[in-house]
Nucleic acid binder design. Sequence first.
DNA 1: ACAAAAGTGTTTGTAATACACCCATGA
DNA 2: TCATGGGTGTATTACAAACACTTTTGT
Lengths: 245, 245
Amino acid sequence: MQKQLHPNISVDCVIFGFDFEKLNVLLVERTYLHPETKEVIFSDYTLAGNHVYVDENLVDAAKRVLNNLTGLDNIYLEQFYAPEDPGRLLKKNDQLWLKKEGKNPEERVVSVCYFSLLNCKEVSIQKKDRNVDWHPISEIRNLGFDHDIILAQALKSLQVKLQNEPIGYEMLPLKFTLSQLQKLYEVVFDMEFDKRNFRKKVSKMKYLIQLDEKQKGVSHKPARYYIFSRDVYEKTKSDILNFSV
Amino acid sequence: MQKQLHPNISVDCVIFGFDFEKLNVLLVERTYLHPETKEVIFSDYTLAGNHVYVDENLVDAAKRVLNNLTGLDNIYLEQFYAPEDPGRLLKKNDQLWLKKEGKNPEERVVSVCYFSLLNCKEVSIQKKDRNVDWHPISEIRNLGFDHDIILAQALKSLQVKLQNEPIGYEMLPLKFTLSQLQKLYEVVFDMEFDKRNFRKKVSKMKYLIQLDEKQKGVSHKPARYYIFSRDVYEKTKSDILNFSV
DNA sequence: ACAAAAGTGTTTGTAATACACCCATGA
DNA sequence: TCATGGGTGTATTACAAACACTTTTGT
């Protein structure tokens, strides 16, 4: 008879942010100094995460992490993965770090992972004592713990979700231009689209509503603003599935 | 400072089975008898699940559940969800049941859920002392615990996955006919497809390979057998994504 | 000979792709 | 007047959808 597991539970959040140019992820710096000499032993980045409290809903724990970093509530959150490997925190640097943080490095931690979507320009990151910042997804590598794996899963889940639901609006301001929307799809899928074909495609989306208002103060022809209507979307969406492969 | 959670961890498995006619799910009967009078207080069904052992990979725990029920290894397994609500086991019947099973009904259990795919005709369910059996998905309701929610999520995940990857073959024998394949897609998506259009579509899938062998002993024109070639699939698949919505 | 499912083509509409120029604004 | 990004249309090709009859087998 094997012993049952009673691990610590945490949530890890892959916080995607779009800045109208590229897709970013919010990372927390992790710098480990030698206990005596204070020289830098290693320095890298991790995703944001936190432990789950007794009687706390998992998604509420993720909301807490988000609120802590941004001061915002009502951020789009989507659960996408739970790492499976019991050895996920056993790399040397991770063990050093956990010890330093006053945690038991031997203890297993089961994480449930969420991704969330933000517009970088509209949030101010609450740094507090931490060094937290946006990093372009194309430049991220060698994250701490198993966070490279989690991030790769998150991106794939975001792509699948964005392919099937209009969640891109979560990463844009209320009013946005079609070029901004196109750029968003381009950076998420890491592909370029033809402007005319893109506009033809989105013009079929009834829930994308053109405003009379235009950009101001730009040194080129001002673009029209659009808004996303969740209302129209909910009323007109169909559940038709289409196996493609 | 809130107290950190150290819950029990379990895996729940939504075991889908195709019997060439409908989509089924493997359920375990749960009958609670009055401790003295032995009259039936309630009787319902739950998904298969089990606790995770210390140092056990989560997916290995799910494999253990599967192996326990079917005697098989190497079954297709896909993690899809972790229920978030701390109150997921607090319904009256569930509490009675947990007590009867010698568990602490107050203890929080965090589950990670997997779905798996089988061909009903090719597995023999190892019942042991339990009443375990296939149930047509269209007839399943009022499962124990929060398993209705888990099942609904599983079906949606299966649909999304089947739409994007040729995993249907996991629910068919090695050799299958196109009508069987079509029926599989029909029961998963709960839609009917036109035979000619379906065949036109799958004829574009290079990894679907026609054999010379035909059905035998059927009282109608015998159908040709096909096999799925994972090899060809891996070599020819493209990652092109296509946002539709 | 009959019942049962297998197998097969054409037409029509809609969506995907490729491609190039003029427009409105601020500097 | 120039630089910048906004905005637009057409032709071609590929895929989706609708639809009915003949074939092969066992009984």
